[in-house]
C-alpha cells in the first residue's frame, strides 16, 4: 500500500465514522428524554419502593420488602389489585365486542359512511378524559339526562340514578378504550378481501357461519392485540372509575394517587406503581407470545 493510498484510506474511514455517528446525534434528544425522564425516574421509583415511611418525613432510606408485604397482605391493596384486574378484564371484553361490531359495521357499509364513522370513533380519543367523565357525570344522576329522558317519555315514573355505580364506571371505561379497539380491528379488516365473504355466501354459508369460519380466524390476532391494548389502558386509568364508580371502587391507580398526594407515603406509592408496571408488562409479553404462536400455527 502506498503512502497516498493510506492517507485516502484514513480519510475514507473518517467519512464512515461520521456516518456512524450521525444516527446517535439524531437520536440524542429522544434518548435524553427517555433515559432521563423515563429511565431514571423508573429506577428511582424502584429504589424508592424499598424505602421506609416513618413519621412525617416523606421517606426514610432503607432496604426492606415491607412495602411490598403491605401491598400483598393489606386487604385494601389486595382488594384494589383484584378490582383493577376484574374491571380491566370486563371492560376490555365489552370493548372488544362493541369495537368489533363497530369495525365490522364500518367495513361492510358503503365507503361514503366511512369518514363519518371514523370521525365518530375519533371523538373519544380526542376529547379529554376529564370532559368525558363530566359528560357522564351529567347523564347518570337523578337529575341527569338519562333520568329526565326516561321519566318524561313515561317509561318509568320515579327518577332514577345510575351515578356512582359500577355500571357507570364500566360505561365510562369502555367509552375511553373503544377507539383503540375500533381502529386496530378496522385496519385488520381492511386487509381482508371482501369478495371472500361473497364467495362464502355464494357457497350457501349463513352470516354466522361466515363469521365463525372466515372472519374469526383471520382477525384473531387483531382481537388479541386490541384486547391487550384496552386491558393495559384500563389498568392504568384511575380517574374514570373513581369519579363515576362507587366510593368503594378502589383501583390501583387511585391508591397510587391517594398514597402519593393524599398521604405523602412515597415508598408505598412506588411499590404499588411497581406492581402495576409489572402487571402491564406481563400482560404485554403474554399477548405477544400468544399472538406469535397463533400466527405460526394458523398462517
Amino acid at each position: 500500500m502506498t503512502g497516498e493510498d493510506r492517507a485516502f484510506t484514513v480519510a475514507r474511514a473518517a467519512v464512515i465514522r461520521r456516518k456512524r455517528a450521525a444516527p446517535w446525534l439524531l437520536m440524542l434528544p429522544a434518548l435524553i428524554i427517555v433515559l432521563i425522564f423515563f429511565g431514571l425516574p423508573t429506577l428511582y421509583m424502584a429504589r424508592m419502593s424499598f424505602n421506609l415511611s416513618e413519621g412525617s418525613k416523606l421517606f426514610t432510606p432503607g432496604l426492606s420488602w415491607a412495602n411490598y408485604q403491605t401491598v400483598f397482605s393489606n386487604e385494601v391493596f389486595v382488594g384494589a389489585i383484584w378490582t383493577t384486574l376484574q374491571l380491566a378484564l370486563m371492560a376490555s371484553a365489552a370493548t372488544l365486542v362493541i369495537g368489533y361490531l363497530f369495525a365490522l359495521l364500518v367495513w361492510l357499509k358503503p365507503a361514503k359512511w366511512r369518514l363519518i364513522f371514523i370521525g365518530l370513533a375519533l371523538c373519544p380519543l380526542l376529547i379529554s378524559e376529564i370532559a368525558i367523565i363530566f359528560g357522564w357525570w351529567m347523564f347518570f344522576p337523578k337529575n341527569g339526562l338519562l333520568s329526565f329522558a326516561l321519566t318524561s317519555s313515561g317509561l318509568i315514573s320515579d327518577k332514577i340514578s345510575l351515578m356512582y355505580t359500577e355500571f357507570a364506571a364500566f360505561v365510562g371505561l369502555v367509552y375511553l378504550t373503544l377507539p383503540f379497539c375500533f381502529f386496530i380491528l378496522l385496519s385488520i379488516l381492511d386487509g381482508i378481501d371482501k369478495r371472500m365473504l361473497e364467495a362464502a355466501a355464494d357457497l350457501g354459508a349463513s352470516p354466522l357461519t361466515i363469521f365463525r369460519e372466515v372472519l374469526l380466524p383471520l382477525t384473531r390476532n387483531g382481537m388479541l392485540v386490541a384486547f391487550s391494548q384496552c386491558f393495559i389502558f384500563t389498568m392504568g386509568t384511575y380517574a374514570t372509575p373513581s369519579a363515576l364508580g362507587p366510593d368503594t371502587l378502589w383501583t390501583m391507580g387511585f391508591l397510587v394517587q391517594e398514597q402519593m398526594l393524599g398521604r405523602n407515603n412515597w415508598p408505598l406509592a412506588s411499590a404499588l406503581s411497581m406492581v402495576l408496571v409489572v402487571l402491564v408488562a406481563v400482560m404485554m409479553v403474554f399477548t405477544r407470545a400468544l399472538a406469535t404462536r397463533r400466527a405460526t400455527l394458523h398462517v
Binding site: E4, F8, R12, V15
Partner: peptide
C-alpha cells in the same frame, strides 16, 4: 481508488 478529472474523490461524501 476513484479519480474524477485526475483528482482522487473516493474519500469525499
Amino acid at each position: 481508488s476513484i479519480r474524477i478529472n485526475g483528482e482522487r474523490i473516493d474519500h469525499l461524501p
